[in-house]
Design a binder for these strands. Structure first.
Lengths: 113, 113
DNA sequence: ACTGTCCCATAGATAAACTATGGGAACACG
DNA sequence: CGTGTTCCCATAGTTTATCTATGGGACAGT
């Protein structure tokens, strides 16, 4: 309560998978690192909750767009590293172009005087 | 099956209210006309299903962002005309700026090499 | 009359985010 | 040393907003 700022920065439905795949495009990362990466790259606007992140990673694993293996984080902690597969890279391309297609369409509607 | 094109052009969740409010920004329209307007303005990319449109209009009515009254369409059919309220206009401004804020954030993530 | 188009609306299914919860391992601090 | 904090993984259940499916009524053209 009090002066607490209740502003939420939710991830728009449909964009999380794309953001994760994009984060992995330059190399393997663990889940926590993916969330931090998205947070920083978005200049603190986007915050991926763990309850969104890990189910999303499970989906991506099941669909074969990422692979995973256990390893050690920089801080000597056990962590699961996710990596883009070849299929995942193609999927990323599809999601990026579809996203831009739809965003351009929305922009045309909301920009019209 | 066969050569059927299964491409769907769904409205991204969270954007429909904004698109409707924006469509009404220049004057009252009936539901069917709103759907057509969005379809045309988006150059046929976005298609608002009736099962999405009318529940959305109900939400907007309940929240006081639009008002409605029955009248006649151009084709002599009974139609319900929706109009932006003052509160709706403010809401549209909020939704537009929040949309752009989040879209810029997403763009920063997916544009990073 | 029948068919298509215009126009409204609701019910139920679905998807993907969220909150809440749980656990374990390393590190910092008193 | 033990206690808390940060790092890291994961699932269950709730919520929200779209979709599909369905229903009806009224006008227009053949």
């Amino acid at each position: 309560m009090g002066t607490r700022d209740t502003r939420r920065t939710e991830i728009p439905p449909g964009t999380l998978d794309m953001l994760i795949l994009k984060s992995l495009a330059r190399g393997a990362m663990h889940g926590y690192g993916i969330a931090e990466h998205i947070h920083h790259m978005s200049e603190d606007v986007l915050e991926v909750e763990e309850g969104s992140l890990y189910p999303a990673l499970q989906r991506l694993l099941i669909q074969g767009w990422v692979s995973a293996e256990w390893g050690q984080s920089e801080n000597n902690r056990r962590a699961r590293f996710y990596r883009l597969t070849a299929a995942g890279r193609k999927q990323l391309e599809r999601e990026l172009s579809e996203f831009e297609r739809v965003m351009r369409a929305i922009t045309r509607v909301i920009r019209t005087a």
